[in-house]
Amino acid sequence: MQSKFKMILVASAITFAFSGSAFAQQEEIVKIGHVGPLTGPSAHLGKDMENGAKMAIEELNTKGIMLDGKKAKFELLGEDDASDPKQGTAVAQKLVDAHVNGVIGHLNSGTTIPASKIYYDAGIPQISPASTNPKYTQQGFNSVFRVVANDGQLGGTLGKYAATTLKAKNVAVIDDRTAYGQGVASEFAKGAKAAGVNIVASQFTNDKATDFNAILTSIKGKNPDVIFFGGMDAVGGPMLRQMKQLGIKAKFMGGDGLCTTDLGKLAGDGLIDDQVICAEAGGVEDSGKKKMDAFKAAYLKKYGTDIKLYAAYSYDAVMTMADAMQKAKSADPKKYLPELAKIQHDGVTGHIAFDPKGDIKDGTLTIYTYKDGKRTQLAVTK
C-alpha cells in the first residue's frame, strides 16, 4: 500500500514537472535595460527616470502581452552610470552581455552618446527619455531614438525668448563643460545672437563645482540682463544662492537640467520669484493634460513623492518600445527595430513618432518660472 502511494506521488511529481516545464516554455522573458545616474549630484533625476520605467514594466506585466505565441514577462535591469562617461560605457557593455532586448537611457548626453555606439554595434535599440544633445542622433545609428526635443529646439527657443519676451540686450553664458551643458548653451547663444542679443561674457565651470564667486564677479561687471546656465539643477541651485549674495539681479535662464521641481530646495533663498526662466524638453498640451495628471497622481501614490522631471518620458519610452515589439510580434531587436522606427504611439507625454534620425517629430517645449519656490508653467510651445 505504501509502495503504491509512493508511485502515485512520483507520477504526480513527474506530471507537475512536465506541466511546469510546458508553462515555462510558453513564457518569454523580455529584458529591458535602464541606465541613469543613481549616485552623484543628479541621482534624484536618475531615480525619477527609473521609477517611471518601473511603472511601465509593472503595467505591461498586468496586461498579459503575447509575443510570438508566448506570454511576455518584462524585466527591468537597472544600472547606475553616475553621470560618468566611463561608467556609462561600462554598464552599457554589461547590458549587452546580459542580452537585453532594448535599453531606456541614459539621462546625460555625455553618457548617452558614447554608450549608444556600444548598443548600436550589438544591434540593440535605445530610447533616451532625457538626452538632448543633437549629436546623439547625428551619428548615423539606426538604433537610437529620443522622446524629447533636442538642444537645437530648446536652446534656440530660449534664445529667442530672451530677446523677444524678456527684451534682453546683453546676456552672459555659463556652461558646465558636459556634452549637455555645452550643447544647450551653444544653441542658446546662437538663438540669442540671431535675435539681436549681445553675448557679453562666456564662462564655464564643471558639473561638480560649488564655488562660482570668481565667475559671477567677472560677469557682474558686464551688467547682463540675463545669465544663461547650461547644466543641471545641482549646480544651478548653489549658483543662484551666490548670485543673490553678490547682488546680481539678472534673469537666470537654463534648459531642462535646471528646470526641475527640486530647484527650489537646491537654491534655497536664492530662488527669487520670476527670476528663473527655464524650459523642459517636452511638455503636454491642453489636450493631453488629463492623461498626464493621472500619471502624476499614480506616481505620487506609488512613490510618495512628485515626479522630478523625466519619469513620464521614461514611462513612455518603455511603452513605445513594447508597442513596437507587439507590432512585430517579437522582442527580437532585428524584428522590432523597423516597427520602432515607424511607430505611432500615443503616450502620457503626447504623440510619439520619430524622424529618420530618431528625433521625436514635433517635439514640444514647456517654459517655466518659479514662484514661492515652486515651478510654475508659463507656456507650451513647439
Rank of each mutant, 00 (worst) to 15 (best):
F5C: 00
I8P: 00
L9T: 04
A13I: 13
A13Y: 05
Q25E: 14
Q25N: 13
Q26L: 08
E27S: 03
E27L: 13
K31P: 05
G33C: 09
H34P: 00
H34I: 12
V35L: 04
V35E: 07
L38P: 03
T39C: 05
P41V: 09
G46S: 13
K47V: 11
N51C: 15
N51Q: 15
K54S: 14
K54P: 02
M55C: 06
M55S: 06
A56P: 11
L60A: 11
N61V: 13
G64C: 13
I65R: 03
L67G: 07
K73D: 12
A82I: 01
A82P: 02
P85T: 12
P85G: 09
K86D: 02
G88Q: 08
T89C: 04
A90Q: 15
L95N: 13
D97R: 15
V100K: 10
I104S: 04
H106D: 05
L107Q: 09
T112P: 04
K117T: 15
I118G: 00
P129R: 11
S131Q: 11
T132A: 08
P134E: 13
G140R: 13
G140P: 10
N142Y: 08
S143C: 07
G159E: 03
K160F: 04
K160Y: 05
K160A: 15
A163K: 04
T165Y: 11
T165P: 00
L166T: 09
L166G: 07
A168Y: 07
K169C: 10
I174H: 00
D176P: 03
T178S: 14
T178Y: 01
A179K: 01
G183P: 05
E187M: 08
A189Q: 10
A192M: 12
A194P: 00
V200C: 08
V200E: 05
A209D: 15
T210C: 01
T210H: 01
L216C: 05
T217A: 15
K220H: 04
K222T: 14
N223M: 08
V226K: 14
V226M: 10
I227V: 14
G231F: 12
M232Q: 08
D233Q: 04
G236K: 04
P238H: 07
I248Y: 03
F252G: 12
F252Q: 11
L258E: 06
L258Q: 08
T261Q: 12
A267C: 12
A267E: 12
C278H: 09
G283L: 02
G283K: 05
V284I: 08
K289G: 10
K291S: 13
F295V: 11
A297G: 06
A297E: 14
Y299P: 10
L300Q: 12
K301Q: 13
D306M: 06
D306T: 05
A311I: 05
A312Y: 02
S314W: 01
D316Q: 07
A317Y: 01
M319I: 03
A324L: 12
A324E: 04
M325R: 06
K327F: 09
S330N: 10
A331R: 02
L337P: 02
L340K: 10
A341N: 08
H345P: 02
D346Y: 04
I352Y: 08
I352P: 01
P356N: 09
K357R: 15
I360F: 07
I367Q: 01
Y368V: 04
Y368L: 07
T369A: 11
Q377C: 00
K382Q: 13
